[in-house]
Design a protein around this nucleic acid. Structure first.
Lengths: 435, 435
DNA sequence: ATGTTGGCTAGAAGCCGACAA
DNA sequence: TTGTCGGCTTCTAGCCAACAT
């Protein structure tokens, strides 16, 4: 119904989703991670997957799919953005297709830099007492220029939200010292969207010069969606069963990706996935860079060190690349940041003192074609560098040192079995001979 | 979190749920219908189960369970009531347990008639222009008596909602002609709960004389819950997979029952189910009575005729008792009413010209114990009375006559296979020898 | 008996520059 | 440059009885 209407403006949707969110393009190949999908459910229901799940032996940790369809949406109530993707599991990808996939970019590249600004609302912005204080630069950059000869300089602003609803504001330049303000119309917007101090508004100008606006709620909001419709257990199981069934019958399935609610993207362009998994050298002790979203909705690179490699959930998801890296962060203010990341999220820094080919196993495994099928496993080795007092190197080592020792003790990563998904020709595909 | 808090007041919850809703008691045995559960999902997501589902061969149309736990809830935002039930599938029920189950009533019998009233809000009630007009009888019945010697007679009313929040109202008796009104405090309540004309408010007095109030939103509201979290396909599959897994591993599972959203109850006390299925004579042409909720939240009995017996979904749910009866209604205003009902929802009227023992097959099936296991089937017969020009008897016969002929042609019900769930001793249990 | 409306009024919403930070 | 506040104005929320059904 109403809530089902598609969002037309992709750029605005992406702005609302946040600076780091990318979307795969229709027709391209992607890796879908049931684990990541479960994490989104967990984050939304605020429950862990604690029940004993049925095993889905045919459901690998990642499912290679072709993106059959994607539509963008926004919650009718909260304007929360989400994307509906229909995925077609693929059992074999030919070289041509693969090359196309390689050619296609890593997502919808809307890097025609958009003219936009966002602001975290202050108490004054949201109080009934007054209007909205427009940051100076923002007014100059995205709003139509004011006629400063008028007394006072003022104009009417019209902006459309994700649902294509129009919002009217009076934009005035006054006060001592002078400043830009939104007055009439602003409080209606605030109360309609139920904005509170701490939430973010976002204005942007599209190609035609039309104004668009979106909102991004502060994280806290998420709390009250205990769904009342399905138990969280059923949701977890539904995610897995749907994927397993689709994989087994080779039929399409549909998922929702909610970029603000999900801890990480769980539909990754296959090229990006392959590059990270097969063409990148990873080892414990290695330092890396990772982009993260800052408080004020821009991005920043943080530096960290890989402190361990191993399964996030050895029971349910053995041999998964999902968050297979344990990491420590250089900055002590890094309390909030993830302790586990996935290979494709990081950008390794060249570190002269560490030489390690985690992909060496792949080079060596030039054995004859494996019988085709899902979930074949190769046992293999990864070389683990002995850290040699490196603990001092990777930050505070809050638990870093221990982690590495534990890893060695437990042999995680020393002898690691690796699951080859879908078909072995994917392997060939990811292993150009010149590598 | 907040939204997870239990509702303490069962009576108020039941009032909000509606006059026909009953809840099974903890420890009692129930029949759980995945089909009915799916219908609740369908109603909530406004989508049919159109995907090709995986088959769950071990999941019968009904699952006999013991009610392990039940908690009552109300949505923090909308106050929509729902119940969380944890069900323990049972593989065998001893005679003692069965007797207890028989002894236990058909649900929480709170038939200490509650002092309450409900009113559908008018435009004036919800406008910002004024207050709430209290129906005369309601004021006398549930509100504390006014001191009419005062000029004007007025008092402060305090009532608690499902979340145990207090609401204060000024209750005054004034106007020409005199009438009871809620003024100060009313509009805050209306805007907080986002009530609109057509929604229902409900006041009641508990045993201690304290006032309680609840709300019931008009049906329309339901539209905007496209969930944005899980695709409807995943939800359907989640419902089935969770039940199938629980049945297979004999472990507990949790469901949500949403009485206002669900077309029918799908957790039925086993006694009620057994009585209807095994101890009630049913045949095509038979007339029956059924209680339904009226517009103004009371109940009314409607009369109808059984026009057919057969599977609602012969493909996915063969041999299911869920809505196995096709019915026609006497009143022509019956456009809205269900065309299919379940055995336990109706009350057969004694009709002298129809003698039919649908349970005759059971009496005859005194064969030695069947091997234990799920989903065993007995082929059996049901006697179908030839309708002999009865078509004129059962109302307008809009499609009744055709239905019956179709049924005969297709042999639905003439030779009917019947699935015995769980264990054969359940059968014995439902067949007292004196019947 | 009770839904709707016009009149009246009190208080909140909302526009303004002053004044910090 | 921009967040908050006191002062002032405007408008709506909200109380009332009249009137209608």
């Amino acid at each position: 119904m109403e809530g089902d209407k598609k969002v037309q403006n992709t750029t605005l949707w992406l702005e609302c989703a946040g600076p780091l969110v990318t979307l795969p393009v229709v027709g391209s190949y992607v890796a879908y991670f049931p684990q990541g999908h479960s994490e989104q459910v967990a984050a939304s229901t605020q429950k862990e997957a604690d029940m004993q799940f049925p095993s889905y032996p045919n459901l690998p940790p990642q499912l290679i799919c072709q993106l059959y369809n994607i539509t963008l949406h926004a919650d009718q109530e909260t304007d929360e953005v989400y994307a509906q993707m229909t995925l077609q599991p693929v059992t074999g990808v030919s070289c041509q297709e693969k090359d196309q996939s390689l050619m296609s970019n890593l997502g919808i590249q809307t890097k025609e830099p958009t003219i936009s600004f966002s602001k975290i609302l202050t108490a004054s912005d949201t109080s009934t007492h007054g209007g909205f204080s427009i940051p100076r630069r923002a007014a100059d950059k995205v709003f139509p220029p004011l006629d400063y000869t008028k007394q006072p300089p003022a104009q009417e602003i019209v902006a459309r939200d994700l649902h294509n609803n129009e919002w009217h504001f009076r934009h005035i330049f006054r006060g001592q010292p002078r400043r830009h303000l939104l007055t009439t119309g602003w409080s209606i917007f605030v109360s309609s969207k139920r904005l509170q101090a701490g939430d973010t508004v976002l204005f942007m100008r599209d190609q035609n010069g039309h104004l668009l606006l979106g909102i991004r709620c502060a994280k806290r909001q998420q709390t009250a969606i205990p769904s009342s419709l399905l138990s969280s257990d059923s949701m977890f199981i539904g995610v897995l069963a749907a994927a397993a069934h689709a994989a087994a019958t080779n039929s399409r399935f549909t998922i929702f990706y909610n970029p603000r609610a999900s801890p990480s993207e769980f539909v990754i362009p296959l090229v990006k996935y392959n590059k990270a998994v097969f063409h990148t050298q990873i080892s414990v002790g290695m330092r890396f860079r990772m982009e993260l979203e800052t408080e004020d909705s821009s991005t920043r690179r943080y530096i960290g060190t890989i402190t361990g490699i191993g399964d996030l959930d050895p029971i349910r998801w053995p041999n998964s690349y999902w968050r297979s890296l344990k990491v420590g962060w250089d900055e002590s203010t890094a309390g909030q940041r993830q302790r586990r990341v996935s290979l494709w999220e990081i950008e390794p820094l060249s570190s002269p003192f560490i030489v390690c080919h985690s992909s060496s196993l792949l080079l060596r495994s030039k054995r004859p074609r494996l019988p085709q099928g899902l979930g074949q496993t190769l046992s293999s080795e990864e070389v683990l560098e002995s850290p040699m007092k490196q603990s001092s190197l990777w930050g505070r080592g809050e638990e870093g040192t221990t982690d590495i020792q534990n890893l060695n003790l437990q042999g995680l990563g020393l002898e690691r079995s690796m699951q080859i998904h879908q078909r072995s020709d994917l392997m060939a595909l990811t292993l150009p001979s010149d590598y």
